[in-house]
Design a protein around this nucleic acid. Structure first.
Lengths: 337, 337
DNA sequence: ATGAAAGCGCTAACAC
DNA sequence: GTGTTAGCGCTTTCAT
């Protein structure tokens, strides 16, 4: 089988305890001894058995990422950021999918999670879901991406502000009839869409416009959903001149709907998104960018700090800035609004 | 701390051995006993300690995914497919990034890998890299996505055929001067680009066209790279009328370059990709689709079959079909070529 | 069908 | 500084 610590100990002429100390860089080991141990371990291709180490120490040396989606851009980009940090810290990364996201009760229990990870990063899971709540209140270090929860390390954008920024951009261009494509109609478990809706309303109110409920459509945060939502908006008797989409992916769908209708974004109708998806540049979509990958890194660093593995990240707060990137999909309304 | 098997045993009035058997569904346990054990475990919220179980049994109950990129569409989509399968099988999924992909020697060693997973899925790692070779020859079940390696479970498309299909599509439209945007100039460690280049040449040869080396550009399989490569092609004295891009992401870049130049894809110049990236539909890009998510699922199923966890997947072979999807970015040449 | 007991390979007191 | 020793919580023979 595999080389064990005993063989290294024998080869180096010391006890297993000393090998353990030497290999982990603990103090109270003579430099000469440490060198001998290191050499022996290297020459034997020794690798500690994580199972044994975990069992004995109680620490797993791994952290879990819990997320409802893996393939979507936002999530995989966060994941990538997290992975960079855990990789550098020498920790294992466990990926825990959560089955169907709208029935997120495949969220692992505290017990199950604690058995396999020292901490967890929760990506865009509804903070008010009972199972998620259970995890948050559990005595397990957790870091959250995508929403702000009191007393828990978090990283997120100011959703209301981002939405305000997007809406204000359209208002500044002269639009007055501005629709919004939100997530799901049924007061979703996710708070993101509520905050963004508030920002949208705030921006309108600030210039004396009453939000019009007929101008709200729902796109489930998917491309297909965005497309369908846009179709509904285009079928309105009194069409909007601009559409604020709560995500770039939905905006992409909206652009498809537009094209199918023979309309041109930025000419016939303005479209803006939120995310900073790489494809936004390709398709010339105006959007409010959020620094997704570094949000993943930040979440991981915060978690490692709580675990005492590394120093806390430089940036103190988890509220990260967004940036409006104006492109061809937004322009003044065709005929004065 | 956590509830242990002993407490379950006491609560159920049996030995720990019986609890272990009952919980794992092993034979030779009285039905009544099993029920009692199950009830006791449930009421105590008992969860087996994977570390202990792994240490004692030698099996880790997890599988690793080794990949150079996490955030890119192809990789995260494969990962998503893999996760569905491991999740359903109750296995843990370990995500192992490989640092810088062109210096892929952060590939884990056999020892390290074997200590933490029962098997691995290697996604688009160069099969001829020495470290990858070491893994393949190691006595550890492995499944490969993205290339075909003899005697190893694999899933991939026929790269040459996909490229032939793409190129033939352009030829059929009447194009004769067809450029190609490949990956990297320096005979890359990845074989994908070589196979696709061969397919491209084959298709040309089949209609009596000699491949022209000046019509080959390199885009590193990234959007930015594709954009730059297209710029080079546009600067040619004798411009191509169509461009075959070895990936959709590079094609996206090519489309951006075109737009910046004031040219319209499908009118001034035709562009085709390979992948079936969701954004291809959004941007109206003709492409050769590959079933990426199900490739991930297939790879995972094959691996689990080798591990004896589940039955082998239905589809016998790992060579999956591709499909040409014709969209607006390809059309007959402007003026008869 | 069930139990007793010996590890799996490591870590962490504690002793020296 | 280093060694001894007792577990960590399971699984797995081997008895019974």
């Amino acid at each position: 089988m595999a080389v064990t610590i005993r063989e290294v100990a024998e080869s180096a002429g010391v006890s297993t305890a000393t090998v353990s100390r030497a290999l982990r860089g603990l103090p109270y080991v003579d430099d000469a001894t440490r060198l001998r141990v290191l050499a022996a371990a290297a020459s034997l291709d020794y690798v500690v058995s994580p199972s044994a180490s975990r069992l004995a120490s109680g620490r797993t040396g791994s952290i879990a990422v819990i997320t409802p989606f893996i393939a979507r851009w936002f999530f995989s980009t966060v994941l990538s950021g997290v992975e960079q940090v855990t990789h550098d810290a020498g920790l294992d990364l466990l990926l825990l999918g959560v089955g169907d996201p709208d029935r997120p009760s495949e969220v692992p229990t505290e017990q199950r999670l604690r058995q396999r990870a020292d901490g967890a990063i929760i990506v865009a899971l509804p903070a008010d879901d009972p199972d998620v709540q259970a995890l948050l209140h559990a005595n397990l270090p957790v870091s959250i991406v995508g929403s702000l929860v009191p007393d828990v390390p978090c990283v997120a954008i100011d959703d209301a502000e981002a939405a305000r920024k997007a809406t204000a951009h359209l208002l500044n261009l002269g639009h007055r009839r501005i629709a919004v494509i939100s997530g799901s109609r049924s007061g979703s478990i996710y708070t993101t869409q509520e905050h963004r809706y508030r920002g949208y309303c705030d921006a309108l109110s600030a210039v004396g416009i009453e939000p019009d409920p007929t101008l709200v459509a729902f796109g489930q945060f998917t491309r297909e959903g965005g497309e369908q939502a846009m179709v509904e908006l285009l079928n309105l008797t009194h069409m909007p001149t601009a559409v604020f989409c709560m995500s770039d992916e939905m905006a992409f769908g909206a652009l498809v709907a537009l094209r199918r209708r023979g309309l041109v974004a930025g000419v016939d109708l303005s479209v803006i998104g939120i995310d900073g998806h790489p494809q936004a540049e390709v398709i010339d979509l105006t959007t409010v960018e959020q620094p997704v990958e570094s949000m993943g890194r930040f979440a991981a660093e915060s978690l490692l700090a709580v675990l005492g593995v590394t120093a806390p990240p430089e940036r103190a707060t988890g509220l990260v800035p967004t940036r409006l990137v104006s492109r061809g999909s937004t322009a003044p309304p065709r005929d004065g609004g």
